[in-house]
Each structure stands twice: as structure tokens, then as C-alpha cells.
Design a protein around this nucleic acid. Sequence first.
RNA 1: GACCUCUUAGCUCAGCUGGUUAGAGCAUCUCACUUUUAAUGAGAGGGUCCUGGGUUCGAGUCCCAGAGGGGUCACCA
Length: 599
Amino acid sequence: MCCSISSKLSIVYSAQSYSAYTTSNYLCAMQRTEQERIRRESLAALRALGIEPYPAAEFTVTHRSKRLAAEFKDGLAVTLAGRIMSRRIMGKASFAEIQDSEGTFQLYLNRDELCPGEDKALYNTVFKKLLDRGDFIGISGETFTTQTGEQSVMVKELTVLSKSLKPLPAVKVDEDGKVHDAFADPELRYRMRYVDLVVNPGVKETFEARSKVMQTIRTSFDGAGWLEVDTPVLQAIPGGAAARPFVTHHNALDIPLYLRIANELYLKRLIVGGFEGVYEFSRNFRNEGMDRTHNPEFTVMELYVAYKDYHWMMQTTENLLSDICQAVHGDTKANLNGTEIDFAPPYRRVTMRDAILEHTGVDIDGKSEAELRAACEQVGIQTDDSMGKGKLIDELFGEKCEHHYVQPTFIMDYPVEMSPLTKVHRDNPAYTERFELMINGTEVANAYSELNDPDDQRQRFEDQLKLGERGDDEAMFIDQDFLRALEYGMPPTSGIGIGIDRLVMMLTNQTSIQEVLLFPQMRPEVFDQGPDEKGLQALGVSEAWTPHLVGAGFDRPEALEGLSPGGLREKMNGYRKKNKLDIPALTLEEVETWLSARN
RNA sequence: GACCUCUUAGCUCAGCUGGUUAGAGCAUCUCACUUUUAAUGAGAGGGUCCUGGGUUCGAGUCCCAGAGGGGUCACCA
């Protein structure tokens, strides 16, 4: 019985190959690697056996790998589904690793257990020959423990759920958990995240941690009675921050629109409207450089709560971060590049003045722009005329202080010039009630006692405009509607923005933002257009020669441009000889016809 | 945007001062094997050496230009 199926199969094979080797399928086949061709032949062979490689029906599992391992005992009837990640075939018995959403589990396939009757094709042909690493299968069977003590499932039934046509990278993990031949090229990993997730252990965990971070925030804020909201991504005035926006165009209104650089001004309008607390996970877009900590689109969680100030916000923040770290690690401590970061409150609070004083010896208090410029130059910071007081102080802090704050630290009381949306400090009008949370030398959050004095806000916007005229191309636009909203009255409010991507980096020990974004921005990939055999034939290329022209690299009419007839004829006849083609050699006239048709 | 650097088989990588037919491990294919686990043993196939020019008797290797990636810097509330 088994033999008769194999012989039926071999007929299928040859029939398939024969029909494939005629026209367009052959051309596609030329583009594929050997391994892909073999997998497509297996696909056809499965169909020939009456097995649909992409079945529509639901497949219901009873277990997933991780829980099964935890609750394991011998003799359980289980149904699992997942991807075949490895196979160890030993004649009439085999072991395989199946990978589902939780992890992997070992399968034991015994020919006579899987095929108790006369027909052994499911084991001998389907499993051993036609299935590959990467294919999805569903199995039912009984749990048992092998002689070497490995938890396994003795497979009694096997269902093909999806055939994989491209081979996965051959990553192997040894007994010590050491990864061999890792799929490590960042370009390939980010462009094909789906492969990265399948093949590299640990990648999933990063994104599960990311989800936990967001869940913890939601649970905490919802518990406090604050409302999660959605505000416009397409904005006529890109406000709330200073950055170069992406511009697009709305056809019906015939106006330019900008992708938001921030959502701050909209959330404040909602506080004006009477919500006590609102928050949003805001995808922001900034048309600026990309590097290890910047992606053109990134996520900021913004929260605004009425009747609060920035001291309250500091407490709220440190408690929240501590909860988040607990949720991710089960502990308030996280390891970052060998340094232990402790998220347990309270965090150190340092004023910007003290920070700069401590690390540069410069006291910014009461200094004029000229004095600050001199101070910058003195500590080796280059300045130019477009830089105002705020920018100069920002440079001092960014260059000389920022990197010192490794453990979570609130840097507070920023100079008024660098904080146009922040209320002035209750004790000193030169400063504002603003803090940034620094972790590992990077800014993770930015918060204020929000400016709710409409006249002061208008004045600050105008000061920004003046900076813009001096050449600071990131000064803010004036949002008249936002000012009108403030004139209706906004209660005292504290707000914060937390950079979710950077926070996740800190919590997952990643040094690149690309590692915490599922699909980081990349230059678009250029795909081969593939051969254009009809285009070639339109030039007069015979059906017999078309595949060989393609095979030699002249796969579309454009590829013939500017070639000399003699040269092309010589090349193709050489190809004919090398590949021992049983077709007439090309004549010069024939080649000339093609080329003149093209040119 | 500047500089440095990388690109060789499906994956990870060797390849010397330029020199026969470009190699290895895994993966793939064939055969053997009924409790293995980086399974094992025997055999086989698989390459646009990123692309395009140039130097040379001869280029994976040297030169020029380009593409894509990574790093450092610049930019970045």
C-alpha cells in the first residue's frame, strides 16, 4: 500500500515538473532557490494526495506549550498546533519540535502509532518527505516522558495547517541554551520582523513587556477615574511641541494638514471642557533625523489631571514607574547594560540650576543671555546667534549634566525661556514648574504645572515667534483656538508626557529604539520586478528562447537596451552551448529584429 | 548631512601580498536508522562574491561611482 502511494507520488512529481518546465511557471522557478522549488513540489504533492495545504477549517487546541509543560503528567490526551521548528528523523520514528505562541514542545512520531492501519503514507510520505521546518501542523496524541526525561507528545493524528514555502534561517539552540548561527543581521531582522519573531528567542518577550507597560498604565489610570481619549492625528496647526512636522494635503478641503508632533493642546482643551483627567497613547510624527533613540514615529503617553501641580505629578510618576517595573520584572529593579536601575520611589529631585552648578560650576540664576553665552564658550560649548537664553541653558544641561543621571531623577524648575507651555514658578518668575525624568542619562518623561493664564500663554507664543525670526526653525506655531479655549478658563492642571519607546528600552535592556518597535522605519526595500516574458516575446523573441534569455539575465525588454546585436548573439549562443540547449542557434538577423523592435 | 565600516550558498561565516574549477558548519536532497535532542552515519546538489564602471594577461580580493545596512558625530523640548 505504501509503495503504491509512493509510485503514485512519483508520477505526480514528474507530471508536475513537466508542466512546470514549459512556460511561465518555469520562469518563476528560475528565480527561486533550490529549497523553495522543492517546497513547492511538496505543496503540489500534498494536493495530489488529497491534502489541502491551506485548509479553511478551525483547528481547536486543548493546550499550549508553556501551560502543558507546567501541568505535565504522562497519559494526557492533548491537541496542539504550531510550527515545526526541527525534525530528527530516525527511520520508523521521529522527534519534532513544535512552536506555538507560548514556546516549543517535543513531539514523538512513531510510524505505527500514527498509521495503525496498512497505509503508512501519513508518516512515510507526508511527515518525512512533504513537511518541512516552518510548516504549521496540528496534532493530537498522548503525553509521555522519554527515556532521557523529556516531556513529549506521542502523536496519533496529524493535520497539515499551512505549508511554508521559504526556509527559515537555520538557528539552533544547544543544551546550554546557547544560540548557534543566530539570525542576527539587523537589516533582515527589522525588515522581516515576522521571521525574527519566529526564529529569535527573546524578541517576543520585548514586545510582551511593551504591552505590559501600556496595560499597567491603563489599569492604573482607569482605576483613578481618568478617561482614555483619541484626539486628531491630522492637524491644521502642528502644536504642542517644537519639531519639523510631516506635511500632507487634504483634497476635499484643499488645505495642508500636518501629522501631529504632539497632542498636548488637544488634551488641555478637554480639561477646559470639564474632564478631570484625560490620557492618550499618542503616536507622534517628527520629520527629523533617525538614530538609536529616534524613530520618525514614536509613542508618548500624555496625561492631564485638573487641580494638581507638578509636585503631585512627580509622586504619581514614581509610583507608576515602580508599578510598571513590578509588572514587567516582578521587582522594582531592572538591569540596564550591567547597571541596576531601581524604580522604587522616591526619586531624587534636583533643580536645573543645581544640576548645572554641580557639573559645570556655572550658576545660571540671574544671568543675561550674553553671560550665559560666555559661560557656554568657557566650558567648551559652541554657540551661535540664533540661540536664546533657553537654548543656551539647554546646551549646558544636555552637554554637561544629562549623562550623570543614571538612576531615575527628576530634574525640575526649567528656565522660562525653554518652556512656553508651562506655568511660571510660584516662587521665582525666571523659572517654570516643570520637570523631566532622567533615567540612564536620557529623558523619559516631561511634565508641567500647565500654563492656564491665557494672556501669559499668548505672550509666550509671541516670544517663540521672535525666536523663530532669529532663525530657530523649530519655534512654535500660534494656535489661536487653543488660546480661545484658555480664555474660557482651564483649571490648574498638571500634565505629563512619558516616552513609551524609551521607557520600554530601559525596562527591556535594549540600547536601540528599533528593538522596541515592531516595524522600525527603514528605507523601502527595492524588489526585483521579476521577468517580463511577454514583453520579450513582443519584441519577437521565440517561445523557445524566452526562458533562456531570462536565465541569462536579460529578463525584460529594458535589459536589452543599448546592446550590440553581435555581442548579444554571441553571449546567448555561448549560453546555449554551456547549457547544452536542444534548440537552434540564434542568427544575427533574429537578434537584430529584437533590438530594432526595442530601439 | 559628514566620517568610519560591512555586503560571499537559505542562515552564520572563512577566503593571505590579485593567480587553477570560490570553501566550512548548519539547512536542503538521496540512502540507513523505532525514545532522539545542536540526533547520528554515508553520499549529493546548491553561488549575479550587493550593482555598474575601471586597472590588469588575470579581480571575491586593487581603484572609482552607486545602492542598502551598522557605528560615531551633527541634528533632535
